[in-house]
Computed example of a mutant assay.
Amino acid sequence: MIDPIYIASGFGVGLLVGMTGVGGGSLMTPLLILLFGIHPATAVGTDLLYAAATKAGGSFVHGLARSIHWPAVIRLASGSIPASVLTLLVLWQLDLDNTTARSLVNLVLCLALLLTAGSLIFRKALLESFRSRLERLDAATIARATVLVGVALGVLVSISSVGAGAVGVTALLLLYPGLPMARIVGSDIAHAVPLTLIAGLGHWAMGTVDWHLMGVLLIGSLPGIVIGSYGATRVPEMALRLLLAATLIVVSGKLAADEWHRSSASVAALIRGAPADHQDAR
């Protein structure tokens, strides 16, 4: 059965992604966890494949427009793909159904949301502060730094599904200041496709992907992205960035508070000698 609420949620997220260019993970994953009560691991796994599907279309368009800087994409992927595989192996060993893994996903998600919000708010200040220094770096150093950025993104995205959007774009702007914004965005999207696909398949192998949910979300998000992209030029960019950053900070705080209460309940239950009552949603 197709739930119209999920379709509406997908449309809303797609609309914001089209207007801001920020990856849907920073919006969709917290929405699934907080509003719909989806288990964090399932929300992450489902969102990863959802992101791979939506970004594949964007990557195709950027490829046709020749707005992808492939050397940067290859360097990012050479760091992110191995890091993603190793991270998935660690998650598999932890067993994503247990409380420890759930706490790990929530905490990393909070960190990734704060990094995304910070990159939205302070991107201009970061570029002004560090661009002149980074412009003096030689090509080999820039290549190594890009690989390291890929490693960090691989870990963040595999655990939380967040990071490949605003954080990736900010890093590319710092490392490749000579590239036009269109090629920066195109390169970030092109890199996100294999990363989210591999991470999503890894979560699928661990049983943390809801295919029906992903399909319903796509029904709403695809037209939302088109409409949002059309309206992006009609809404002030700075206002959108600040609004989105404020939303991410609030959501991160809500996730952290929920995790704190859950952990406190576990400790209290252990002190009383009784098991904590954790009833995870699907």
Rank of each mutant, 00 (worst) to 15 (best):
V209K: 04
H39K: 05
G200V: 03
G150M: 06
P236T: 13
V251I: 11
V147Y: 11
A276L: 07
S26G: 10
A8H: 07
R66K: 15
G231F: 09
P236I: 05
L115H: 01
R136Y: 09
G12W: 00
A101K: 00
P236H: 05
L32P: 05
I68Q: 08
A139K: 14
A171M: 12
L34H: 01
L240Q: 04
L201F: 14
A246S: 15
L32Y: 02
G154V: 03
G21T: 12
L137T: 12
L15S: 10
D210T: 06
H69E: 13
K254Q: 14
S129W: 01
V105Q: 02
I189L: 15
T208W: 04
L86P: 14
Y6D: 12
T141N: 13
D277A: 04
V193Q: 05
P71E: 11
L107A: 13
I7M: 10
G231A: 11
R75E: 12
I74L: 15
V149S: 07
T99G: 10
Y6P: 11
R123Y: 01
V169Q: 08
A52T: 06
H203L: 12
A72V: 07
L172R: 01
A77P: 01
S67D: 13
F60Q: 14
P275A: 09
L27M: 13
T247H: 02
L113M: 12
V44I: 08
D210L: 11
M214C: 11
F36N: 07
V13D: 10
F60A: 15
A65E: 15
V267D: 09
L173G: 05
S132G: 04
